[in-house]
Design a protein around this nucleic acid. Sequence first.
RNA 1: GCGCCCGUAGCUCAACUGGAUAGAGCAUCGGCCUUCUAAGCCGGCGGUUAAAGGUUCGAGUCCUUUCGGGCGUGCCA
Length: 528
Amino acid sequence: MRAGKLLKVNPRTLAQQLVDTDVLEDVSSNVAIAGPGFINVSLDNDFLSSSLGSEPLVAPTNKPLRIVVDYSSPNVAKQMHVGHLRSTVIGDSISRMLTLAGHTVVRQNHIGDWGTAFGKIVAYIDDLKSDQEINSGLEDLEQLYIAASQRFDRDSSFASKAREAVLKLQSHDPRTMDIWQKFIDVSLRHLEDIYGKLDILLTPADIKGESSFNDDLPAVIERLETNGLLVESDGAQCVFINGFVRKDGSRLPMIVQKSDGGYLYHTTDLATLLYRTRELEADQVLYFTDARQILHFQMLFAVAKKAKFAEEATELEHHAFGSILNANGEPLKTRSGENPRLSDLIEQAEIHARNVVEEKSQHLDVEQRSEIAHHVAIGAIKYADLSKNRTSDYKFDLNTMMSLEGNTSPYLQYAHARISAIFARGGINGEEIELDRIRVKHPAEHDLAVRLLRFQEVLEQSITERKAHHMCNYLYDLTVHFTRFYEKCPVLNTESKERDSRLGLCARTAENLRVGLGCLGISVPKRM
RNA sequence: GCGCCCGUAGCUCAACUGGAUAGAGCAUCGGCCUUCUAAGCCGGCGGUUAAAGGUUCGAGUCCUUUCGGGCGUGCCA
């Protein structure tokens, strides 16, 4: 109908003309025109069978790009908390999908490891007497930061020491840098621990934090100066860009250097962008941060293009999302009003999952149950986030995501476990099943086969829109149809040709689930 | 004040970017385990898509206004 509009032809007439040609002959013998010009195509079972036997799950892109994906990027003054979850989970999933499609992904973890907060921390650690105390003091980042902040507030001599420490950091004073490095090392171990538990791909090699760009900041100012973009206003160095105005006509500034000479995150982000386009040679740079930074990125991209921090052809995208709320729609906080730690959230989810597994999977031993609980918990947390399209806030409710019914990760994982169980019972190696023996016959097989062939299309849509929820919805739909097939079509207890065909459908479903959930960073247990 | 995002079943969310009778899950009510895992399957109930107007063959989707919520709006990130 869109074609009809474009060609200014009656859509029904156009549909008829299309049907009259034989382009659909190999695909369907049952084509009908309906309504204002829809073409209903019922795919033939023969077409489905041969496609499943010959088409790969994923065909790599014919236009591979170098794509920088900026995600997670926590401030490491404190432990990772709930505010870091979405960026981490969403960014990781998108980068997995891009890789699967054949792009070169350069993950970048732009951690907050520089600035005033670290002055406090360094000064505080500096006050701890021995190295022994330093090491023990570093064990809990959270407490260290809180202690440093409290002391900063009530001890004025400590406060001035902290401010000195900031200056010493900026001038790379060896003793100060040494303490700072110790703290960063502990922070990075903490990050690795969390990423390990959550099965996030980020490694130490992907970390390129704010501190790495500290020395490049004066050059950023210079570059803006030579481009004639730098304007002093109330003592601060600013860039004013067309289009960013207030109601009264006054222009919104992007402040790149404070009146006291200090730099801001705009400045750091410009330096970072230069690195990503020049050194990393990015065709695209994708940022995954919460929605509060929308204006920042709009200005950043505008200035970057104008002052050539990024080439005109480099695609810069900010993908925003809302914050995480509790079941009552309020910001998720602990009883004491803090952001819940990620490690606590994960632990809660695992306890919740373990209780369910204890009840449902008594046929498995303790070790297996514990491992399954882990995969279920992590899957549930990630899936609850990824399956929603919302750019606004979303509710984090363990009871909902762990209900293990309906559109949740455990439902999908369970379907995969059932397929594995069929293979195990039949003494069959699932990886050796030949898909060219698939002969689609039963209506339930037909419906399943149609879904099995859609994987590529869904992957492309998810990548184009940078939205994982299309993949989630697809996998759920696939699983619903697999389960119907499972109910209606015995696999092992049927005659041999049909058995081979149905084993093929099972094997292909298992692959779609494994690879699809893999795109989401969710693993598939063989047993549940 | 101004800007951005959002408002779909009691609740949590979809709807292929303007297409058919707006779909799922949860909750609720009823049915299905002597056959591969019942963490399952089948069915019922549930809607003036916040409201009003407009654009056209056609609007949850686009435009205007109103109401309601979230976030941002010069030296934090």
